[in-house]
Design a protein around this nucleic acid. Sequence first.
DNA 1: CTAAAATCTCACGTGGACGTGAGTTTCAAC
DNA 2: GTTGAAACTCACGTCCACGTGAGATTTTAG
Lengths: 122, 122
Amino acid sequence: MRIGELAEKTGVSVRALRYYEEQGMLVPERSAGGHRHYSERGVEVVWLIQQFYAAGLSSKTILTILPCVESREATPEALAVLVAERDRIDRRLAELAGTRKQLDDVIAIASSGACSHDSRPD
Amino acid sequence: MRIGELAEKTGVSVRALRYYEEQGMLVPERSAGGHRHYSERGVEVVWLIQQFYAAGLSSKTILTILPCVESREATPEALAVLVAERDRIDRRLAELAGTRKQLDDVIAIASSGACSHDSRPD
DNA sequence: CTAAAATCTCACGTGGACGTGAGTTTCAAC
DNA sequence: GTTGAAACTCACGTCCACGTGAGATTTTAG
């Protein structure tokens, strides 16, 4: 499929797909005229890239771990990156949970203060 | 305390503190000569800002919710922002957990695949 | 075969959170 | 009173994941 179709299927922009190629994350075939041609697999790869971006991985890191997902095997170095990133996500999860609690406390206190003189404990 | 001391205490750069002021998040007193002077409370505020940044809030959003934390009360609008951001964090937590699982699966498969198939040590 | 749609390659623009001088002024110590 | 560290104000630079034309080329529908 061509770039426009993949863009529609995945919901990412054409520009983004070209950027992914620039970074080496998703390199398609080319037609005689130079147009990009993606396989069905491309859809899943784009999803993965989005997932990893959402997890805060950089394109460089994604570039390292994508081949492992594709080939279902990893060099020791790549495996180390995978584990390190999982740990990073774990720390981030804990951090986020902490901030969530912060926010929750603020909401509890602020709302009781703003809504009325009603200082009912939970 | 002056900006350098606060920077050291909080671990953020002097430039960052000036930036926080630019954004209105942490506005210190000024000496006659124009030097910034922060109270002890400044340390905690910087920690909060960092927390919220880490949670993915923009400086503009932080600017909205910081007064609520300080005054322990919120306008209905600010409260709505607080709740919306908590929800956003909840969604992000779920998202991150999903990606973590993805990564975990990849690690499980890749490591077993790498060890059994290619069991050549260095 | 033609016309329009899609795609192509530059290449500069954007936004957020600062980094990094440059040149000047203030403050604390002696 | 002097001096050196620390702070001050511009104001341009950086990094990342794209956005956004401009202008040329390729592909597809009629």
